[in-house]
Design a protein around this nucleic acid. Structure first.
Lengths: 382, 382
DNA sequence: TTTAGCACTCAAGATTAGAGAGTGCTAAGT
DNA sequence: ACTTAGCACTCTCTAATCTTGAGTGCTAAA
């Protein structure tokens, strides 16, 4: 239950008594008298305090103090009261203490609670921003990879963090067109276009020299035989491919189709790494190295993609501090959203940043961009 | 004259009297008595000392001391002598002093001299390494972008630095094949394959619904009319394109062809950013930020590409500390090499790292990888 | 021309002191 | 029972001071 999945944010707010009770986690030490934690539920005031602690910390990046809060937010109770509440919140694991005389800092659990229950619709994109973004997309002439590159760049800029965008992938890809193009006497380029507009190229070694006309003939035959079939169907058809000399082509084609699935995985557009290096938590080189590692090779994050894609109905998924599942994401949070056309194609838009992140804005950004991409793709192939 | 261009390294060693005389540059302060620099030429001993200072500094990353050198390299003269020579080298701008009681550090000028004159063939790749690398390429099934991705990754790993590889670009690109593929009633995908194997996709809005057969007919006509022509020729032909309804297609096609040139620019594969973050000079966050900036958006470096591509005969180009031309490359060095087929296609392989870099190894790596890529590409289309 | 010797410089690390921020707790007030 | 004023206590952060040692530059002798 570590992963937040939001459908309609800020509404459900889990009724007082039934809400799943957050447990202490992390290495935080609760009060010495462990048995003394009676309150397992947050009072309204505690929720208010937790919320502003988080908002404050997210913007200032400095531990927040009781008195600071009272002054800045003109709270109707004293700093001592706030201190008491803070102590309680800490006992329950929502916030921590860097050291005795420091203010409070949200824990991962705190952020999770915030994202699930506390975050009102804030950090949303203004209509001006939305228009600006939209405009950029419509300036590009309907080029899938340009869109994706732009999406990564815009997402990063808008959310002030690093962004990842995966190319859309068909659930059940069907062949749209095959073309063999001779590039040299004994080499041909096999170009495969799938229903979702993905293009895959593959070089083929030919057993014997063939003219472009020969190749075109083969292409045509392949097309009439295989168009609109999915991989499975193509595989069966190709098995029974009559002419022996072309068996090679058929085999290679199958290879390509499979490779296409794999390659698609790897196709991820990244941008905005610099943004997260500007965050004060990355004044430590060791962390920078880790982050760059994580984002550059990107394994740990792309591993989550299938999960996001199969997450029916859940628009956005937030993974905070790696959710105890991903070691290398420990100090990072990831906001992932799906875009595409239901039942046809789907890709992922993601934001990566420190756990101290503007979750509201990140989520809004992911939502907006994925919605935008979905629109563009729908327009392109209904 | 800031840029080294090497053809046959380690040989020319510029005869004593005629070699172009390096001038003091940078903000380095020479001896207080500015007029007192008599020797404008390095003695053999000074060259030896300069060389080992650089080699030593490159491996240890710590300022090298006179006595340290004498001990470690069993030099046949005392540390005092070395100190004198060092003072002279510093007067001429080849090395510097972080502060009074520190050892010497090579200046950019020093590195340049080293690369031009001092560096013997060292840091070359062992045959084992070469085989390992080659093997990896031949495991990939002739997929251009996979090759390039791999090239970036291997280059980075081999040179222990960040790597860039640009996609090969034809000098005079000729059309190999065009195909219109209907993806929706009023939308078609235009796929363009050029002689060098590059593929470009572009969506087209159709004025009226057309069947795949219609589209194929147009494709065929385009092919028979335009195949093997270059952009210029295509442009003229298209201008006179007879059928009016297809004028749109023709126009869009031209747009695509032009876009292809631009897009090609942007297509750069990067890898190994982490490697350079591991270098001790990047313990300072500010620098890290700059480097990530430079490599992520990559403008400053890709701007140099055309220069490399047009560099006839010069195999490898080394830019040290930005060569006073590129502000954001000040603490970085870049080693760039060209690959491709003479007069047909060409791309760039590059290495980026701190100025304190194993130039020998970087150069060897760039040479080997570009030679390898050239081979692969030649094989693919003669 | 080389080198031993030595004074001089400066970064880096250790130590100390002081200030300030913020907490936790207690006891009084409501 | 909750709230709050008050205060002791803790711990970081900064500045100041000192010490150490590495490494140079220069001088004078070989």
């Amino acid at each position: 239950m570590a992963t937040e999945e939001l459908e309609n944010r800020g509404e459900k707010r889990s009724s007082r008594k039934t809400g799943s009770r957050p447990r202490k986690s992390e290495g935080e030490l609760a009060s010495p008298v462990a048995g003394s934690d009676l309150s397992d539920q947050l009072s309204e005031r505690q929720r208010v305090i937790l919320r502003i602690i988080i908002q404050e910390f997210v913007t200032t990046a400095t531990p927040v103090s009781s008195e600071g809060l009272v002054n800045k937010y003109r709270l109707p109770y004293s700093s001592a009261t706030v201190r008491n509440e803070m102590a309680d919140l800490e006992r329950q694991g929502y916030i921590t203490h860097p050291h005795t005389s420091a203010g409070r800092v949200p824990s991962d659990l705190g952020y999770r609670y915030y994202v699930q229950n506390l975050m009102q619709r804030q950090g949303g994109l203004s209509t001006v921003e939305q228009h600006t973004i939209q405009h950029q997309f419509y300036q590009i002439h309907l080029e899938l990879n340009e869109w994706l590159r732009l999406a990564a760049s815009v997402t990063a800029r808008t959310a002030h963090n690093a962004a990842l965008v995966s190319a859309p992938r068909a659930y059940d890809s069907r062949l749209k067109h095959v073309q063999l193009i001779g590039v040299q006497e004994r080499w041909a380029l096999l170009v495969i276009v799938t229903q979702d507009g993905t293009i895959k190229e593959q070089m083929l070694a030919l057993d014997e020299p063939q003219t472009q006309d020969d190749l075109t003939t083969v292409s045509n035959r392949l097309n009439s035989l295989l168009t609109n079939l999915n991989w499975k169907q193509i595989e069966t058809r190709l098995r029974d491919w009559p002419e022996d000399p072309n068996k090679v082509v058929a085999g290679r084609m199958m290879e390509s189709l499979k490779a296409l699935d794999r390659a698609q995985d790897a196709q991820v557009y990244r941008d905005g790494l610099v943004n997260i290096l500007n965050q004060p938590e990355f004044s430590d080189i060791e962390r920078v190295r880790q982050v760059v590692q994580v984002i550059e090779n990107g394994q740990s994050i792309t591993n989550i993609f299938p999960e996001v894609l199969s997450n029916d109905g859940k628009a956005v998924q937030v993974i905070i501090g790696g959710d105890n599942r991903f070691e290398d994401l420990r100090m990072l949070s990831v906001v992932l959203g799906r875009y595409g056309i239901d039942g046809q194609v789907a890709g992922v838009v993601g934001i990566v940043g420190p756990t101290r992140m503007e979750y509201g804005r990140s989520i809004s950004t992911v939502q907006y961009i994925s919605q935008l991409l979905s629109g563009l793709i729908t327009e392109r192939h209904g």
